[in-house]
Design a binder for these strands. Structure first.
Length: 239
DNA sequence: AACATTAGCAACCGCCTGAGA
DNA sequence: TTCTCAGGCGGTTGCTAATGT
């Protein structure tokens, strides 16, 4: 063994960047069938040109069925703020107290919203304490009514939603739901569909989209009976 | 309308840790 | 005890969309 660490994978042979729909499905399909005992070996076994770490990250942050998407509630934000006071930047520790939320997501929310808000509140606190009519501030009152909550941020653009709708129309109209997980590459040729994860239904706030996606996966992964599949198709047609 | 700047977030990088040989 | 390896973690980057000028 030479000096230094061995790379986790051959960087020249792995794909990087945003995950495509077909890659997602391959990963989901493989994990559904075989689990994820060995992340390093998984990409090859699943037919993915990805680093094992990348697969793990994708699964944990986006594809796991129990990942909760959508805006953080004010309660969750409070929890993060309080836990951050206790644990600092130990995002996985904080995430363990917020079911369905990932460390990466919490880290992003902290860095983009909560940190700024706390700075502003510190400022306000400082200003008010320097004036005679200062009001006391204590834990649990980090959120004043005028502060911006994450409710005001929409994670999904209308364009992304349009793409999702286009995608589902395409899937239903053509009845081209792939029958084999090995034959998913054509999904990527659905040219205008943004293949970044933003369109992925598990990232949609709208539960309707999530449900459609999950139903599709059930069909794709043969987790439903034929009758159930028919029901699903009928439900889609009614929507 | 066009360009510049900012915000949001998915994904990558590299280090750390623990298990097992 | 030492070494290797895989998984996990936190920091950071880079792309895209939104907003401002």
């Amino acid at each position: 063994m030479g000096k230094g660490r061995t790379a986790c994978c051959d960087k020249s042979k792995v794909k990087k960047g945003p995950w495509t729909t077909s890659e997602d499905l391959k990963l989901i399909s493989f994990i559904q069938k075989h689990g994820h005992g060995n992340w390093r070996a998984l990409p090859k076994q699943a037919g993915l040109l990805r680093c094992g770490k990348s697969c793990r990250l994708r699964w944990i942050n986006y594809l796991r069925p129990d990942v909760k998407r959508g805006n953080f509630t004010p309660q969750e934000e409070d929890t993060i703020i309080n836990l951050h006071r206790a644990f600092g930047n130990r995002w996985s520790k904080i995430a363990s107290h917020l079911p369905g939320r990932t460390d990466n997501e919490i880290k992003n929310v902290w860095n983009t919203h909560l940190k700024k808000r706390l700075v502003m509140m510190k400022k306000e606190e400082y200003n008010s304490s320097s004036s005679s009519t200062s009001t006391s501030s204590h834990q649990g009152q980090y959120m004043d009514n005028n502060s911006t909550t994450l409710e005001s941020f929409s994670p999904t653009s209308s364009k992304a939603n349009d793409q999702v709708m286009d995608f589902w129309e395409y899937m239903l109209d053509t009845s081209s739901t792939p029958t084999s997980i090995n034959n998913l590459d054509h999904l990527d040729s659905y040219s205008n569909l943004d293949t970044t994860s933003e369109h992925h239904p598990q990232q949609l706030v709208d539960e309707f989209e999530c449900q459609k996606w999950l139903t599709y996966l059930e069909i794709e992964l043969e987790l439903t009976t034929n009758n159930q599949q028919e029901d699903h198709q009928n439900n889609f047609m009614q929507l």
